[in-house]
Amino acid sequence: MTRVLLADDEAMIRAGFRAILGAAPGIEVVAEASDGHEAVALALRHRPDVCLLDIRMPRLDGLGAVAELRRVVPETAVVMLTTFSEDEYIASALDSGASGFLLKSGDPRELIAGVRAVAEGGACLSPAVARRVISRLGAGQFGRQAGARSRIEVLTGREREVLALVGAGLSNAEIARRLHVVEGTVKAYVSRILDRLDVRNRVQAAILAHEAGLAGEH
């Protein structure tokens, strides 16, 4: 059973997420928080597998909370809940160790899939977030193209192709269809890419793809 902590200052948002996750097999919402301080306290008490954390909250915002959560409950994966108006916060959340980003207004299936992915040690990146936010980051403070191109030289041609598609925001299933392989093969490629590039998760790999100029190739 994947145990989830919800943290959002809007009760209706929490209720919506609870309803979606509560209907998904194998997922249980164990606690809810209305601010960052409460989220950290409840995470210490319940030790959830995943914390869904709103970026903007009173007392301690999501950026402060994710850093504290990574410090006190490192085994809990953190997924940031965002809107398109909060693009500028993503870089800081990445640096703090967030495992994924989902739009509050996104498809409920993305929410369920994202929770399951990070609970299994992966990462989740809403395609909508990837195509808008990661592109913006790649053109801004993460635009260290020469260094990124040097880093990806360790990859094979096929691995570079998979990395480019990760950078474009495609899921493993979408990449498998694009490359005409089974999804398990894509998972193996992604795992090897993360290891060879020495990046924490899929989100950071996507940013590196943009830094290197790979994401625009597909």
Rank of each mutant, 00 (worst) to 15 (best):
Pro25Gly: 08
Asp195Glu: 13
Leu63Phe: 05
Tyr189Leu: 09
Glu120Val: 06
Val40Arg: 02
Ile55Met: 11
Leu197Ser: 06
Arg47Phe: 01
Asp9Gln: 00
His46Trp: 12
Val181Cys: 09
Arg71Trp: 08
Tyr189Lys: 02
Arg70Thr: 11
Asp95Cys: 04
His37Met: 13
Val118Thr: 03
Lys187Tyr: 14
Ala77Leu: 01
Gly62Arg: 00
Gly138Trp: 07
Val115Tyr: 00
Ala65Gln: 04
Arg3Asn: 07
Met80Trp: 03
Lys104Thr: 07
Glu10Thr: 12
Arg70Lys: 15
Glu217Tyr: 11
Ser191Gly: 13
Leu81Ala: 05
Ala7Lys: 09
Phe84Tyr: 12
Ser171Thr: 14
Asp198Ile: 01
Leu214Tyr: 06
Leu42Ala: 10
Thr2Trp: 00
Gln145Lys: 13
His37Lys: 14
Ala128Phe: 10
Leu44Gln: 15
Arg202Ala: 06
Arg59Phe: 08
Glu75Val: 04
Ala67Phe: 05
Arg158Glu: 12
Leu6Asn: 05
Tyr89Asp: 02
Leu5Phe: 07
Met57Lys: 03
Gly36Lys: 09
Leu103Phe: 04
Val154Gly: 06
Leu102Ile: 13
Asp49Val: 02
Arg136Val: 13
Thr2Asp: 01
Gly121Met: 06
Cys51Pro: 05
Leu42Arg: 15
Leu69Gly: 04
Ala168Cys: 02
Asp95Trp: 10
Val30Phe: 08
Val186Ser: 05
Leu69Trp: 08
Pro25Leu: 00
Gly62Gln: 04
Ser171Phe: 11
Gly97His: 09
Met1Thr: 12
Pro127Gln: 07
Val79Cys: 01
Glu183Asp: 13
Val73Ala: 15
Leu53Cys: 05
Glu32Trp: 09
Glu120Phe: 08
Ala39Asn: 03
Gly169Val: 01
Arg45Val: 12
Gly184Leu: 03
Leu165Tyr: 04
Ser135Tyr: 14
Val199Asn: 05
